[in-house]
Every structure is written in C-alpha cells, then in structure tokens.
Design a binder for these strands. Structure first.
Length: 259
DNA sequence: ATGACGGAGCGTCTCCGA
C-alpha cells in the first residue's frame, strides 16, 4: 500500500497538479491539508474520476483537510477530541478515516505565527488535543498513523539555518515536546529520503529563491505506530512536485507499506 | 534551469502562511 500527505496550499488552483500527481504516483491514500475551501466546494467529481473517494472537512477561506482513498473510506471523524477554538472559531484542521484496514488522520497543525501571539498558545493547546485524540483512536486496535503539516521542525537539522529561527515558532521546546508526547504514545517519525541534497525538507517559502537555494524546512511529518512503521519499505519527499509552474510551497511525502 | 511569493475575499488592500 502507498500512502501520502501533501499540503497543497489551496485545492482550487492546485487541482490540475493534484490530479496529475495522483495519476503518476498512484497513492492508495492521500492526506491533504490547507484546502482553503469549504467542504461543499471540494472538487469531489474530478477526484472521483481519478478513482478516489474523498472525505473533506473545510470551513471556508482558511485551513481545511481531506483524505482521498481508493482502498475504502469508512468511519470518518472530523475534528479533535476537546479541540480548542481560536477567537471563538473552530478551524477545520483534522480528519480521520479507516482506509484499507489502516486508521489514518490528516492534520494541519496551527502555525503559531509569533511566540507572543495568542495563536502560539492555540497551537500548543491544539497539539494537546491531538495527543488526546491519538490516545483515543489507538483504542480502535487498527494500525494507526497521523500524517500532515505539523508546523514543527523536530530538530535543528530540520531547518536550513537554525540561526534564522532564533525567535521563531516551529523550533521551540514546547512544540517539540508535543511531538515527543506523540512518540511516547508509541508513534515514530517515519523519516523520508530526499530525492536530492542531504536532508528531506518538505517546505520551501515561495520568496527569495528559497527552493532553488534549498532553504527548506522539514515540517510535514508521518507519525506511525509500530505496525505501520514496521511495514515501511520506502519513504521519500517528492520534491519534483515543488518544481515548475503553479506549485504548492510544500512537497508531498510518499510512504510505501508492505502490510 | 528547480529559478527568485501566492491565495482568498469584497478587494485596488489586508490577512495569512512559516
């Protein structure tokens, strides 16, 4: 089985590239983040013609997540257990489903913005709710993984220059402790191989030539339990999907499993 | 060339992203 995750930075303008990518890479399951569309506005028909069912969760202009599957899509759950709000609004940042016997979640962790911003506290609260949800979900007894844009660089090596991030989110100890809490639940970081250079970055800012200069970050992650991680035969960041005209600023991660 | 911000909304700018 081949599973994948991709922050597409809006499904509308990205749809042609997503369809092309599905056709060439042929994942069985694709977790999407940052749809920037409401649930009803998702292009279900075009994706169905490509052979995939979709469970989408979007609330409009920001965030939004989905799971596409050609191996079944059951028991869909939208949102986290005890999910916090921001400015009294609930975001659409997490969706879970059972696909081909696996319990999979697609998540888009809040950015945090700045260390003094209330959005940073929201990010940490959201991560606590994710931990609680993972704990609950594991009681289903199915092989389990959570995939998505975590907006956290797990180590200093996961950004191109840690000196640039001295007063920034994404690299702080509280954020990294939230990842450690997921590992304490038995999940492990499925570390992909890069197609080029020596580190598997998954995000490069559009600005200032960051992609051609490989000023990237590894913030999209696959956290899998032992049954899933033990079945991994290959994993890579498809940086080719970051090239060319009209790309997302994130590249997909592809994980092959022998279950 | 991989190649030097882009998406969305009521919008001619601001917010957001990381």
């Amino acid at each position: 089985m081949r599973i994948a995750t991709w922050n597409v930075n809006s499904i509308g303008p990205r749809l042609p590239r997503v369809l092309e990518w599905l056709g060439s890479v042929q994942p069985d399951v694709l977790c999407l983040q940052e749809l920037k569309s409401g649930t009803d506005a998702f292009p279900f028909d075009a994706v169905r013609e490509a052979g995939y069912e979709t469970a989408a969760y979007g609330i409009g202009r920001w965030n939004g997540v989905a799971i596409l599957s050609r191996v079944g899509l059951e028991d869909v759950t939208r949102g986290l257990t005890g999910e916090p709000t921001f400015e009294d609004k609930t975001d659409a940042r997490a969706i879970g489903a059972t696909c081909g016997g696996l319990r999979l979640w697609s998540v888009y962790v809040p950015n945090g913005r700045d260390l003094e911003n209330p959005h940073y506290d929201y990010k940490l609260a959201w991560l606590s709710a994710l931990e609680a949800t993972v704990r609950e979900e594991q009681s289903r007894g199915l092989p389990f993984a959570v995939l998505g844009d975590f907006n956290i660089a797990p180590t200093d090596a996961d950004v191109w220059d840690i000196g640039v991030f001295a007063e920034s989110t994404h690299v702080t100890e509280p954020e990294r402790k939230a990842l450690a809490a997921l590992r304490d639940l038995g999940l492990s970081d499925v570390f992909p191989r890069p197609l080029k250079y020596d580190h598997p970055f998954t995000y490069w800012d559009y600005r200032a030539g960051n992609f051609p200069n490989n000023k990237g970050m590894r913030i999209d992650l696959v956290y899998a339990d032992s049954r899933v991680s033990g079945a991994v035969t290959d994993s890579y960041v498809d940086r080719d999907a970051r090239k060319g005209k009209g790309p997302s600023d994130h590249a997909p991660i592809v994980v092959d499993l022998s279950l």
